[in-house]
Design a binder for these strands. Structure first.
Lengths: 339, 339
DNA sequence: TTGAAAGCGCTAACAG
DNA sequence: CTGTTAGCGCTTTCAA
């Protein structure tokens, strides 16, 4: 068995209280005793039990994180940023990868509750009723990152998805495109589904570009769905000359579809993605994208959550809206009348 | 404060023992009492404290995982598989993302020790002396996944990297290539560095293909280094006609470099990658790759670790060697004499 | 400055 | 079947 504080005390010839004191860096311990205790700790290879400490301190330094899909470029990057910030603040991460699995999510939320995690980060917005009511009666701080759920009880760290989608679409319009297709997300999602869609529509409307229903498709943010939907779009007559996809993954899927049909990006079709994930630089042509500040988003999420944890009265009723930024790479070009 | 077992007991009019019994699904509790207890639990929204339970049971159901880079396609996929398997077995994951940061790794290993995690999964092999000695005197089961460290005290779940690299190179040779370049990893790594390199060399030697030192470069497994090294290779005279890169990320970097120099894969240069990550299907042309069974690797890692945990005498002194598989896609073609 | 002892929330003998 | 009680390994009054 691992040595306990009592073993250290015995070996050092002091009381457990004294050991506890040097463990916690309190003063009021004479140097010679302190030295003795430290030696005993080393010799025993003693490490205080975080479990026992948590029990008495009522603080676990654990943060539970719910990620929709670890293998997505966007989420793995934001998680990486979350992990870094948490670690810097001496918090550890309990990670749950739910893959559209509501039962698993509920089970994990329950684990988080049993574990008495100090805070919870949730990164998807399609909350089932069970889950909604569960987190509503939870007395653990919850924060949403990159999404905002419908009922506005919790803080979210997000960008203005409407504006971002509007700006992305406008970019295409300003390049002279008039047949602009849209590959959207799940319309049950407010932020990444509805807001981005409305941003697209309004940009068209405000600039008097015709909205063609056939040019509008919805998918699940993943590469494969981008690919499939692009295939449908290629069958349209006339073909769109530009595409706005609401995730980089879908944009890449669309690019691949276009490539597989012997067409060229951006010569035949211009594409703009959304997220600003690492993928944008990995593909050829490099993907222009409406970037979310992924790193900042992760950091600010954790920083805010930690404030929430340490000061329960602190409660920014406002969401934290971060800035978006269009990053132009090589996947779009000005539209020219066909020759 | 969260309700405790005592509150439930009071509310249900029974002793804490009885509550504990229904919590743990023991028989020997009359149905009516059981019902009462369950109702009390519901009304209070009670969830047993995992902390307190762990303290008395001496089992945390926690697995600590050390990942080199969460954003890499390979590691995020294997982590995803690890998470799934762990979850299925009621284990939770404490995740540490070390980014070549030895201090952070040591700090986390210490956290794992303090947390009294039941087991530890490590996915990199460049162990510092501190870390080596730390895990050697740790009395928590440790397992390595996708790598094997030099001192062979722990179990590893890996493929035969030597054979895999040999087979990948032979594939290129059989396609008729004679100027085959190599982009390797870190030679301080046994599995992914040395073994893959020697596999490459021996394949050339066994098939009487000339080894050209200029065609051999080493990087850090990442896209950028693949890009940079390919740039150097393109400057060679004569240029290699094929490339074996020991990670898909580096292979994609090389592909991009080739593309940016107005050359074509596979027409000008054939490329084969290593890992079989999701990237292979994301790029164009699709990347042929020597695949590791990533999903299985994650699953087997966790399954084996759980055996190690539940039966300390159980100790497969042998590593678990999984099969590799060449998956041919579109990035290689037969070599034809230049016209 | 130091130590004894009372919990933190739960499980597990041991009685009844 | 059910309840009493003694810890699990630590922190924290309260005294000395």
């Amino acid at each position: 068995m691992a040595p306990k504080i009592k073993d250290v005390a015995k070996k050092a010839g002091v009381s457990v209280t004294t050991v506890s004191r040097v463990l916690n860096g309190e003063k009021y311990v004479k140097d010679d005793l302190k030295a003795k205790v430290k030696r005993a700790i080393d010799e025993l290879g003693y490490a205080p039990s975080h479990i026992a400490r948590s029990l008495v301190r009522k603080k676990t330094n654990l943060i539970g994180v719910i990620v929709p899909d670890l293998t997505s470029s966007f989420y793995s990057t934001i998680l990486s940023s979350i992990e870094e910030t948490a670690s810097l603040n001496d918090y550890n991460l309990l990670v749950c990868n739910i893959i559209e699995d509501t039962d698993k999510e509920l089970k994990y939320l329950n684990v988080f509750k049993e574990m008495r995690v100090d805070g919870i980060i949730i990164m998807h917005e399609k909350l089932s009723d069970d889950i909604r009511s569960f987190i509503n009666k939870l007395d653990i701080p919850v924060i949403f990152s990159s999404v905002r759920p419908v009922d506005h009880k919790f803080v979210s760290v997000i960008i203005d998805d409407y504006e971002a989608a509007y700006d992305a679409t406008r970019y295409l319009i300003e390049l002279g495109h008039e047949r602009i297709a849209f590959i959207g997300g799940d319309m049950r999602d407010i932020t990444s589904g509805q807001n981005r869609y409305v941003g697209y529509r309004n940009a068209l409307k405000d600039h008097r570009v015709r909205t063609v229903n056939d040019y509008i498709r919805f998918g699940d943010y993943k590469t494969q769905s981008g690919y499939n939907l692009m295939k449908e779009l290629l069958a349209c007559e006339p073909r769109p000359t530009a595409l706005f996809a609401v995730s980089d993954d879908m944009a890449v899927g669309a690019m691949n579809c276009i490539h597989d049909h012997q067409l060229k990006v951006p010569d035949d079709i211009s594409i703009i993605g959304f997220d600003g994930s690492q993928l944008t630089e990995l593909v050829r042509p490099r993907l222009s994208s409406m970037e979310q500040p992924i790193q900042d988003m992760g950091k600010i999420t954790v920083d805010t959550l930690i404030e929430l944890i340490s000061d329960p009265t602190f409660s920014p009723r406002e969401d934290l809206i971060l800035g978006h930024k269009l990053v132009v790479r090589d996947s779009c070009r000005a539209f020219q009348t066909e020759r």
